[in-house]
Design a protein around this nucleic acid. Structure first.
Length: 907
RNA sequence: GGGAGCAUAGCUCAGCUGGUUCAGAGCACCUGCCUUACAAGCAGGGGGUCAUUGGUUCGAAUCCAAUUGUUCCCACCA
C-alpha cells in the first residue's frame, strides 16, 4: 500500500480482481430469505452463447447500481443471474459450425444434433457471465440459472400442459411467418419490416377465350391488346416468382377500367395455366392496373381471398425457400434467384409490360436479418391471447406496475388491445420439446394427439380415448417441434424460484414479486408483457413493481452499434483500459430512462478521471500528520459544519432522484459532491498550511471529521463505483479487514442548515470574485490582499476568504475611501480590494457603466411587473414579495454602482 | 395509414406541479498556472430569440393548437 499510494494515478487492474474474488468468496452477493425486506432483481437473461456488448454493459450497470444501493439501504438484496437458450440464434450458430465441418443438420438425428448443441453451449456458455463479473455485477452466482436447466425446463412443460388443459393452447392451420433459413415458423413480433427499394413488375396475363372479350363501353374502361390484336390484362406485382402459384386474378367489381374482364379467364404467363378472374372489393382500384394476381399459398391477403372464393392453393416453395415440385418451372432454385431469372424470361417472352421502381416493406426474420420472411400455410401451436392480454393490462393501467418513462404505457396498451394469438411452436430442435404425443392415424385421417408432461402420462391419457385402449408407449409419436424461446423467458421471475413446480415454497413466497426490471424497450412485447401475463396467471400477482426502460446505445454519430459497422467498442477492452468503475460512471452519466445514449469513449475517460480524483483526494488525506495538540483552524471549523450540511442535502437530493429512477442525475449529484464540494472546497479549507517545505499537522478533530466524510462519500459512491470505494474504504482503516463496504449503510439524509449553506455559497462567490480580480490583475496567490466590506456579510466569510483567496484581513468599513480599489458586489453587499496603482480607472469606469446599464434593464422588467395591477392582484404573495425584493436589491446595486462611479470620475 | 417521442450552448442532455436553481449541467472551447493530492489537474472565462407561428395567463423554455424537421413503434395494400 505504501508504494502504491505514492502513485499519482489510480491503477484499477489489481484492485478489481482482488475485490471481486473477495466478494464472491465471502458470499457477499448471496441472499437467503430472512426477516429483512427483500429486494429482488432478475437479470434479463443474455443469450447463453453471447458475448457482452455495450447494451449489456449499460443495462447491467444500472441493475447493479440498484441492487447494491438496496443492499446498503438494509434490504435483503438478491440479483439472480442466468442465461437464455435462445433457440433460433443458438441453433443457427450450431448449424453454422456443423456445416463448416461438412455436417448437415438433416443428416443428424435429433439426439446427435442436441449433443453438438450442448457441446457448443458448454464451450461458449458462461463467457458472458464471466464478463459480467469484470463489470462488478453483484449477482448471486450460486443461483445461476439457465432456461433449459432442469427446473426451468420442467416448469415450461408444466405450464404448456396446464394452458392446454385450460383450453388456451390449440393447434391451428393458418398462414404463418416462415423463416426459410432457419426453416421454422415465427411469431408476428419476430418479423421486422424494412422499407426497401424494389421493383414493381407489370405482367401480361392473356385472356384465355379471346373471342368472348367484349368491351362493355363503361366510361374509363382500359383494354390492352398486343400487336396481333390479342387481349390481355396487366397485373402489377413485386413478386413475379410466385406466379407459378397463381390460382386467380382479382379485380374490384366497381373498377371501370377492368369491367371487360368480368367473368373471363386469363393465362398465367410462362406457366400457361388458365385461372379465373374473380371480383372482390378488397382490390384497390388505384393501385397498379387494378388487377391483382392471387397466390393463396404465399400471401396472407391472397390466402383470405382464396378462402372466400374457394380457390385452389398451390404451394410452390420448399421449406428452405427453393421452388418445389409443385411448380412446372425453376424447380429446386432459390426464390431470390428465380425472381431475377423469371423477370428476364418474362421479358424475353414478351410478357413483361414494364418495370417500375417501387418502395415497399418487406418482412425479415428478427433472428436472421438477411432472410425475408415467407408467408406459409402450415399447422402450428398457438396460445390464445384475449384472457392473458386482459390480465396483463390491468396492473399496468392501475399503476401497480410502473413504467419509467411512463410513455411506454401507451405502446404497451395498444399492443395488448390488438394482440394476435401467439404462435409458440418452432421447427427447431434446440429448445423445449412440445409435450404433445400423436396417436397413430391412417392417411387422410384427422390428427389426434394428447398433451402430457411425460410419455407415460401421455399414454395414460391416450388409453382413455375410445379405440386406443391398447396403445403402447412406442406407438405415440412425440411432437418434433420446440417451443418459442420466449415461452420459457416469460416464466423467468417465477421459475427462477421454482414457483411453477412448487408454488408454495419459501423462496418464491419471499422473493416474488421482484422489485425492479431493467430492460430495453424493444422487448416490451416479447418479454415484459408476457412476464406480466405469466405472473398474473400463475402467481396472481405482478412479477415486478417497476420497469426501467433503457435506451439503445448508439455511437457518437447516432448509429446503432453493430458488428458490421464495427462501431461497437469491446466492453472488456474498455474495462482493461479505463477500469470497471470508470466505465460504469461514464455510461451512467449519459443514461436516462428511455432515451438512447450516444456513447463516446470520452465519457469513460471522464469516469477514469473521476477515479483518479478520488484516489488523489485519498492520498492527500492519508498523507497528513495528525496532531493532538494542534488547534482547529477557523476555516476547518466552518468547513466541517458546512460539508456536513452539504452532504445531507445531497443525499436527500439523490434519494429523490433514485425514487424517480433519475439515476444519471443521482450519479451526477454524487460526482459534483465529491469533486466540487469535497475536493475543491472542503479539502482546500481544511488542508493544513505548508511552511518552509514542511506541512503543518492537522488537528485530530478535523482529521477524524474528514475521515468520516470520506467514509460517507465512499458509501454514497459505492453502488456506482464498487471497486475503488471498497479499496479505499479498507485503506481508510486497517481494522476493517474482513469486513466490506457492501455491508455498511448508505449515508442518510438529515435536517439541513439552509442558512449555513446560503452563507457559505455567498462566501464562495466572494472567493471566486477575488480570484477573478487576482487573475485580471495578475496578482499571484502568495501576495495577500485586504478586503473591505460595506454592509452585512456572513460571519464565516473571513476564514473562508483568508484560506481560499489569500485575504489577510477583512475590514468592515463605512466607506471604501478615496484610493483606487477593485469593487465588486455579492448580493447587495459591496466589497473592495484596495489596489493602489493597479487599477485602470478608465476601464473600471466603463465596466461600472455597463454594469449599471444591465441592472437598469433588469429593473425595468421588474418595474413593469410591479406596476401591473393585475400581477400584484393575481400573483401569489410570495411571488410579489420576491419581485419587490428584486426591485429593492437592484435599486441598491445601482445606487452603489453610481456612488462608485462618481468616486472614480472625481479622481 | 395509425400512434408516440424529441427539437434548449459547438456536442450530449437536465429543466419535475407555469413565477430566484430560469436560461442550467457535463463534455468541448478560450485564458492563466507544472501553486508539494491530482496537468487524467488547478483557477478564471466566453457561449443560447429555448425549432416556427398563434393562443391561454398578470406571467410561458414550461400549458394548448397548428406548422416544420427528426426518431421510434404499430398496421396484410399487391
Amino acid at each position: 500500500m505504501q508504494e502504491e499510494i505514492s502513485a499519482t494515478k489510480y491503477d484499477p487492474t489489481s484492485v478489481e480482481q482482488r475485490w471481486y474474488s473477495y466478494w464472491e468468496e465471502n458470499g457477499l452477493f448471496h441472499s437467503e430469505p430472512d426477516e429483512r425486506e427483500p429486494y429482488t432483481v432478475v437479470i434479463p437473461p443474455p443469450n447463453v452463447t453471447g458475448v457482452l456488448h455495450m447494451g449489456h454493459m449499460m443495462n447491467n450497470t444500472l441493475q447493479d447500481v440498484l441492487v447494491r444501493r438496496a443492499r446498503m439501504m438494509g434490504k435483503n438484496a438478491l440479483w439472480v443471474p442466468g442465461t437464455d437458450h435462445a433457440s433460433i440464434a443458438t441453433e443457427a450458430k450450431v448449424v453454422g459450425r456443423l456445416s463448416e465441418q461438412g455436417i448437415r443438420k438433416q443428416d443428424l438425428t435429433r439426439e446427435q444434433f442436441l449433443s453438438h448443441a450442448w457441446d457448443w453451449t458448454r464451450e461458449h456458455g458462461g463467457i458472458i457471465l464471466k464478463q459480467l463479473r469484470r463489470l462488478g455485477a453483484s449477482c448471486d452466482w450460486q443461483r445461476t440459472a439457465f432456461t433449459m436447466d432442469e427446473v426451468r425446463s420442467k416448469s415450461v412443460i408444466r405450464v404448456f400442459c396446464d394452458l392446454y388443459d385450460k383450453g388456451l393452447i390449440y393447434r391451428g392451420l393458418r398462414m404463418v411467418n416462415w423463416d426459410p433459413k432457419a426453416r421454422t415458423a415465427l411469431s408476428n413480433i419476430e418479423v421486422v419490416y424494412k422499407e426497401e427499394h424494389s421493383k414493381l413488375y407489370y405482367l401480361r396475363y392473356y385472356v384465355a377465350d379471346q373471342d368472348a372479350v367484349r368491351p362493355t363501353g363503361a366510361e374509363g374502361e382500359v383494354l390492352h391488346r398486343d400487336e396481333d390484336g390479342r387481349y390481355y390484362a396487366v397485373v402489377a406485382t413485386t413478386r413475379p416468382e410466385t406466379i407459378m402459384g397463381d390460382t386467380a386474378m382479382c379485380i374490384n367489381p366497381k373498377d371501370p377500367k377492368n369491367q371487360w374482364l368480368r367473368g373471363r379467364r386469363v393465362i398465367v404467363p410462362l406457366v400457361g395455366r388458365e385461372i379465373p378472374v374473380i371480383e372482390d372489393r378488397y382490390v384497390d382500384i388505384e393501385f397498379g392496373t387494378g388487377c391483382l394476381k392471387v397466390t393463396p399459398a404465399h400471401d396472407v391477403n391472397d390466402y383470405n381471398l382464396g378462402k372466400t372464393h374457394h380457390l385452389d392453393s398451390i404451394d410452390i416453395f420448399n421449406p428452405d425457400g427453393t421452388i418445389s415440385e409443385n411448380s412446372p418451372l425453376y424447380v429446386g432454385l432459390d426464390r431470390n434467384v428465380v425472381r431475377k431469372m423469371i423477370s428476364k424470361d418474362l421479358e424475353a417472352a414478351g410478357l413483361m409490360e414494364k418495370v417500375e421502381d417501387y418502395l415497399n416493406k418487406v418482412g425479415y426474420s428478427e433472428r436472421n436479418p438477411d432472410t425475408a420472411v415467407e408467408p406459409r400455410l402450415c399447422r402450428q401451436w398457438y396460445l390464445k391471447m384475449p384472457h392473458l392480454a386482459k390480465i396483463a393490462l390491468k396492473p399496468v393501467l392501475d399503476g401497480e406496475i410502473k413504467f419509467y418513462p411512463d410513455r411506454f404505457l401507451g405502446t404497451y396498451r395498444q399492443w395488448l388491445e390488438n394482440i394476435d394469438d401467439w404462435c409458440i411452436s418452432r421447427q427447431l430442435w434446440w429448445g423445449h420439446r412440445i409435450p404433445a404425443y400423436y396417436l397413430p392415424s391412417a392417411e387422410g385421417e384427422e390428427e389426434r394427439f394428447v398433451v402430457a408432461e411425460s410419455r407415460e402420462e401421455a399414454l395414460e391419457r391416450a388409453h382413455k380415448i375410445a379405440g386406443c385402449e391398447h396403445l403402447k408407449a412406442e406407438d405415440l409419436r412425440h411432437d418434433e417441434d420446440a417451443l418459442d424461446t420466449w415461452f420459457s423467458s416469460w416464466l423467468w421471475p417465477i421459475s427462477l424460484f421454482d414457483g411453477i413446480l412448487h408454488p408454495d415454497n419459501p423462496e418464491i413466497k419471499y422473493y416474488y414479486p421482484t422489485a425492479d426490471l431493467v430492460t430495453a424497450p424493444d422487448i416490451i412485447f416479447f418479454w415484459v408483457a408476457r412476464m406480466i401475463m405469466a405472473g398474473e396467471e400463475y402467481m396472481h400477482q405482478v412479477p415486478f413493481r417497476n420497469v426501467y426502460f433503457t435506451g439503445i446505445v448508439r455511437d457518437k454519430l447516432g448509429r446503432k452499434m453493430s458488428k458490421q459497422l464495427g462501431n461497437s467498442p469491446d466492453p472488456i477492452g474498455l474495462i482493461d483500459k479505463y477500469g470497471a468503475d470508470g466505465v460504469r460512471l461514464g455510461i451512467l452519466l449519459c443514461t436516462s430512462a428511455g432515451n438512447d445514449i450516444l456513447f463516446d469513449e470520452s465519457q469513460v475517460e471522464q469516469g477514469r478521471n473521476f477515479c483518479n480524483k478520488i484516489w488523489n483526494a485519498f492520498r492527500l488525506v492519508k498523507g497528513w500528520t495528525v496532531s493532538d495538540d494542534a488547534p482547529r483552524s477557523e476555516a476547518a471549523e466552518v468547513a466541517v459544519k458546512w460539508f456536513d450540511a452539504r452532504l445531507k442535502a445531497t443525499v436527500a437530493e439523490m434519494d429523490r432522484d433514485f425514487e424517480q429512477y433519475r439515476i444519471n442525475d443521482a450519479v451526477m449529484c454524487s460526482y459534483k459532491l465529491f469533486w466540487d464540494d469535497f475536493c475543491s472546497w472542503y479539502l482546500e479549507l481544511v488542508k493544513p498550511a505548508f511552511k518552509d517545505g514542511v506541512q503543518d499537522p492537522i488537528d485530530r478533530g478535523t482529521y477524524e471529521a474528514t475521515l468520516g466524510f470520506f467514509d460517507a462519500l465512499l458509501r454514497l459512491l459505492h453502488p456506482v463505483m464498487p471497486f475503488i470505494t471498497e479499496e479505499l474504504w479498507h485503506a481508510l482503516d486497517p481494522a476493517r479487514e474482513g469486513d466490506s463496504i457492501m455491508r455498511q449503510r448508505m449515508p442518510g439524509a438529515g435536517k439541513v442548515d439552509e442558512a449555513l449553506l446560503a452563507d457559505f455559497a455567498s462566501a464562495c462567490q466572494t472567493v471566486v470574485d477575488i480570484r477573478a480580480v487576482r487573475q485580471a490583475k495578475n496578482i499571484p496567490v502568495r501576495d495577500t490582499l485586504r478586503l473591505q466590506v460595506k454592509g452585512a456579510y456572513p460571519a464565516l466569510l473571513a476564514p473562508v476568504v483568508s484560506k481560499m483567496a489569500g485575504i489577510s484581513q477583512v475590514e468592515s468599513v463605512a466607506d471604501f475611501g478615496s484610493g483606487a480599489g477593485q469593487v465588486f458586489m455579492v448580493g447587495t453587499t459591496q466589497y473592495n480590494i484596495p489596489l493602489e496603482g493597479l487599477v485602470d480607472t478608465g476601464a473600471e469606469i466603463a465596466r461600472i457603466k455597463a454594469e449599471i446599464q444591465r441592472y437598469e434593464g433588469f429593473l425595468r422588467g421588474v418595474n413593469a411587473k410591479l406596476s401591473n395591477e393585475r400581477f400584484v392582484a393575481n400573483a401569489p404573495e410570495q411571488v410579489v414579495a420576491l419581485e419587490r425584493k428584486k426591485h429593492s436589491d437592484a435599486t441598491t446595486k445601482i445606487e452603489n454602482l453610481k456612488a462608485q462611479l462618481s468616486k472614480l470620475e472625481n479622481l
